[in-house]
């Protein structure tokens, strides 16, 4: 019996033709905090309430200077395409805030 068991074990090992070529371990990460760092200005609250739940403020603050119409279209894309829960009534305030921020010197943004 013992010899038969040893043979079965040997066959099992032979069936496992090589060691696994890669060993996958679990992975986890703790991402840095995302401070809501927005300059003061009219409409700032509307931006905090409608925009920064999904992405950092830098997404907006780092954009080149564009027109109010462009900001309107960007907010529209967030609402219609990305289904961002942006209050339609807040859109003018968001646009006004971005126009204000883009009028500031870079060092004060």
């Amino acid at each position: 019996m013992r010899a038969a068991a040893a043979l079965i074990l040997a066959l099992a090992l032979a069936g496992c033709d090589s060691a696994p070529k890669v060993v996958f371990a679990d992975a986890s990460i703790t991402l840095p905090d995302d401070p809501i760092d927005l300059p003061e200005g009219p409409g700032r609250d509307a931006v905090i309430e409608n925009c920064t739940a999904c992405h950092s403020p830098s997404t907006m603050l780092q954009q080149p200077k564009v027109s109010a119409e462009k900001w309107e279209s960007i907010v529209g894309k967030m609402r219609k395409l990305y289904k961002a829960p942006v209050d339609e009534a807040a859109v003018p305030a968001i646009v006004a805030y971005m126009m204000h921020v883009q009028s500031l010197p870079e060092a004060s943004r």
Partner: peptide, 28 residues
């Protein structure tokens, strides 16, 4: 970047990363 804004923070704060230019924290 022409016309700016051009300054970006750099940080080694992301796990497993060295000094990197932060374009956005979330999503990274």
């Amino acid at each position: 970047l022409p016309g700016g804004p051009s300054l970006r923070p750099t940080t080694p704060a992301f796990p497993g990363k060295g000094e990197m230019i932060v374009q956005r924290i979330r999503p990274p």
